[in-house]
Design a protein around this nucleic acid. Structure first.
Length: 430
RNA sequence: GGAGAGGUGGCGGAGUGGUCGAUCGCGCCGGUCUCGAAAACCGGAGUAGGUGCAAGCCUACCGUGGGUUCGAAUCCCACCCUCUCCGCCA
């Protein structure tokens, strides 16, 4: 959410920043509403001051026995009351309208984010590993002989419909191993604190991390009003909502492995085969809460934490910085990690690491008290996948596949698999 | 699901109709004292919005929304949230 004062002070800069995202100027409409709102507030407060004064005088008039004045003031208060009710309602309405308008405008891009129209203008910043050369045509994950017995879309459709999967045997064991490996690496090597959070949350939490009000159709809501989190960014970040933290407590670095739920509205026809895009999937998420001074460095650190997972799994990837036109709603700057999928013969997103500045903190009123004293200031928030477990499974399967339909598994997973090293062509762990 | 308790400033905790934006304690900031610190003592400080060059002034805020009243943190209604006990249950 945006600071209306900042927009008032420099509307041109605000519009220029939006333009970098390919959006039309918003400040004229915002400032017009703001001006009208302030006029309403002024009128309503003036009327209230009148009433308060008259109210006070009423008692005095009564005390000195001035019945005429007493009655006059009583009538005046009654009049004012109706006027105040009308004016405050109008002021509140405009205030809410302004708030809603500000809530629906995406974050302003950081200076470091490259300006561009869409994904074609994203900038690759580094590449790691070399895609394997195959002496056969590599298959997509769901088409590998050793995988097929453990990846069942028909049964999932029976249970739940499209975009669900039932995993069995060796495949789900590798999936579970991946999640454990990611968590252990973040905890032990990267110093993150493991968390376990609800996946059903109140509406406020969804506003805090900007899923609401604009993207309601992307998430699921229960009949009694809870929302299913589309990512544990929601719960991890909102752990500090409403708090005033000591600067000494920062940075706070968290990680959690949770189910994530997405309606995938608007992505009909996209990635319909395989388990690349599901309504329900698992993700190991990282969230950091920092001071404003350290958030950009934290962004690079978090990106490295995600990259380390792929490196340890020996999966080739590239890191790109999203251009302004391709960034998500809440981001100031985003790094995407794209892993090599030989079955698709292309790099596919497996992690997205964003720095949000004070955009989310402002929404959830998350602040810290500076060490040197002074007023509380908004914290900065960051989030990143570390990594999407299902997509990582796909990458491991496709990159490790052999001509006979078996899959060689990365060495770091072997300890999590009881010492087994591969999925045989018949689908068993070997 | 049943019964009960409660939501007040950074935290704890008073306050049942009229200078209460709110006693007090802790914490915080400034000062005295000290070589320095602690303790003690003195003083200061809520948040947000509006207005003004500024000093300041005004308005709102005691979970949220309504209501009663000249006047509400205090009374009434509805709702939300938290906690405790009982029941059921992974």
């Amino acid at each position: 959410m945006h600071d209306i004062r900042a927009i008032r002070e420099n509307p041109a800069a605000f519009d220029a920043a939006l333009a970098r995202r390919g959006l039309p100027p918003a400040s004229p409409e915002i400032l017009a509403l703001d001006e009208s709102r302030r006029a309403k507030i002024l009128a309503s407060e003036t009327a209230q001051a009148d009433q308060n004064r008259a109210s006070k005088d009423v008692g005095a008039a009564k005390a000195r026995g001035d019945d005429a004045e007493f009655e006059r003031l009583r009538a005046l208060v009654a009049d004012k009351k109706a006027e105040i009710a009308r004016l405050t309602a109008e002021a509140a309405e405009q205030d809410a309208a302004l708030r809603d308008m500000l809530m629906r405008i995406p974050n302003l891009p950081h200076d470091d984010a490259p300006t561009g129209r869409d994904e074609d203008e994203n900038v690759e910043i580094r590449r790691w590993g070399n895609p394997r050369t195959f002496d056969f045509t590599p298959r997509e994950h769901f088409d590998i002989a050793g995988v097929k017995p453990g990846m069942d879309f028909e049964t999932a459709a029976k249970l739940s419909g499209a975009r669900f999967v039932v995993l069995k045997g060796a495949v789900i064991r590798v999936h579970r191993a991946l999640a454990q490996f990611m968590l252990d690496t973040h905890i032990t090597d990267h110093g993150l604190t493991e968390m376990w959070t609800p996946v059903l949350v109140k509406e406020d939490a969804m506003y805090g991390t900007n899923q609401l009000p604009k993207f309601a159709e992307d998430s699921y809501q229960t009949t009694n009003g809870w929302w299913l989190v589309p990512t544990s960014e929601v719960t991890l970040t909102n752990t500090v909502a409403g708090d005033i933290l000591d600067e000494s407590a920062l940075p706070i670095r968290m990680t959690a492995h949770t189910q994530c739920f997405r309606s995938e509205a608007g992505s009909a026809g996209k990635d319909t085969t395989g388990m690349l895009r599901q309504h329900q999937f698992e993700k190991v998420e990282m969230v950091s809460i920092t001071t404003p001074e350290t958030s950009m460095a934290e962004h690079d650190r978090m990106t490295k934490c995600a990259e380390a997972i792929l490196q340890k799994l020996e999966l080739p990837f590239r890191t790109i910085v999203l251009c302004t036109g391709d960034m998500g709603f809440g981001a100031q700057k985003t790094h995407d990690l794209e892993v090599w999928l030989p079955g698709q013969n292309r790099y596919r997103e497996i992690s997205s690491v964003s720095v949000c500045g004070d955009f989310q903190a402002r929404r959830m009123n998350a602040r810290y008290r500076p060490a040197g004293g002074g007023k509380p200031e908004f914290v900065h928030t960051l989030n990143g996948s570390g990594l999407a477990v299902g997509r990582c499974l796909i990458a491991v399967l496709e990159n490790g596949q052999q001509a006979d339909g078996s899959v060689d598994l990365p060495a770091v997973l072997h300890p999590y698999l009881g010492g087994k090293t591969r999925i045989a062509a018949d689908g068993t762990l070997a």
